[in-house]
Computed example of a mutant assay.
Amino acid sequence: MNAVFKNIKFINPIVGSSPAIKQMQSDLLDCAPYNVNVLATGPTGAGKELVAQVIHLASGRKGPLVSVNCAAIPKDLLEAELFGHEKGAFTDAISRRVGRIEQAEGGTLFLDEIGDMPLDLQAKLLRIIEARVVTRVGSNTETPVDFRLVCATHQDLEAKVALGQFREDLMYRLSVFVVRVPSLKERLQDIPELVEKISQQMETGDTGLVPPRFELCAQAELMRYDWPGNVRELKNFLQRAAVLSRGEPVEHLDIRRLLNGKIKVAEEQETLWDAIEALPKHEDSLDPETPDYEATGLSLSHERIRETLGAGQIFSLKEHLEKHESDIVKIALEMCGGNTAEAAKLMALKRTTLIAKIHKYNLVDL
């Protein structure tokens, strides 16, 4: 669980520790306790539905979280879906039905893709927000409702208002508190955590897929792609990788093939991965007689690791990964002639982050 939610007792579905995600989680923590309308904005596939989940869980409301995708339901059915209907209200209304708004009583109503809601329904939603009553289709009776409203859109509502396609008064009602969901391109450093989370879901799901195993260079390669489809595209990519890798480790060249050459590769970047793969690999770098070991290569055999762990010896994962990181940073700096800006670009890092690693691994004299 991220530190920002340490005092809230629930499983946080949002994965990542990048500055963009930390800011979003801080915003969610600020607004969650208050019964104000929230509008989540951001690109398609970025995970805006998670905003509703976190707000609902952190709000302490006892009712359910009810979700409606306004773009997925035909216009002539959306009104009955939201407001409910009485028996005989229209041809197929063979019985009374409670709408999704009433179902959210005491809980949270999440309206996804609110920008696609028809204008006539926007007016009715505005009245419900103001009066807190709902009238089913075919009825004159108003039913009081108590719900927390969270909406989401990938569209520019102000632009739609200017075009006369969205009510300005409703836009202001919905956007009491706006939460921006960052694109995956803005949080590339979260990819390892996202891969781990998606892999866990893959293991417990019903797809029958075995999560792919990525070499270190392959993980770095994932962070060099823009991911225009965001987290949704990453999830689909991991499923494709699971199918095609068939249990074999995935390397950086495999990533490029799986992405159909969408990653633009500079010659010096190719050289970087070639240099990394050319480093000596010492499978015997684990000494079973010594609890602490010094990893001297970029890979260890799975059999050797299992043997060591099975013997009750300590395998210092932290030291092993730090050795990998130190070697790669050193290679990148040497290739760039000590130019930290260029080396940081090669490794998809911020220059300040690279400088911190240089001091951490005592590489200042390179």
Score class of each variant (00 low, 15 high):
P182E: 01
L149G: 05
D169S: 07
T44I: 13
K264C: 12
V178C: 08
E248R: 11
G47H: 03
G205K: 00
K264H: 10
G338H: 06
N7C: 15
G84E: 01
H324Y: 11
I305H: 00
P288T: 12
F90R: 02
I129P: 09
V210T: 14
V161I: 13
L125Y: 09
P33E: 05
E186L: 07
L366I: 15
A241F: 07
T290N: 05
D206E: 08
S301P: 02
E158H: 11
K360N: 05
L157G: 03
R148Q: 06
T135Y: 05
E196I: 13
R306T: 12
L57Y: 09
A266F: 13
E168D: 14
K235W: 12
H282G: 02
Q23S: 15
R187C: 09
T41R: 08
A344E: 00
P291E: 00
K281L: 14
K264R: 06
K124T: 14
G208D: 00
L366C: 11
A278C: 08
I128Q: 00
K235S: 15
S59K: 02
Q155R: 09
L366W: 10
E307M: 11
Y225T: 12
N260D: 14
R306D: 02
A123P: 09
V54N: 03
L188E: 03
E289V: 14
F315H: 02
G297K: 01
L354V: 10
N339R: 04
N2G: 11
P19C: 12
N7P: 12
E105D: 12
A295Y: 08
V38M: 03
R61V: 15
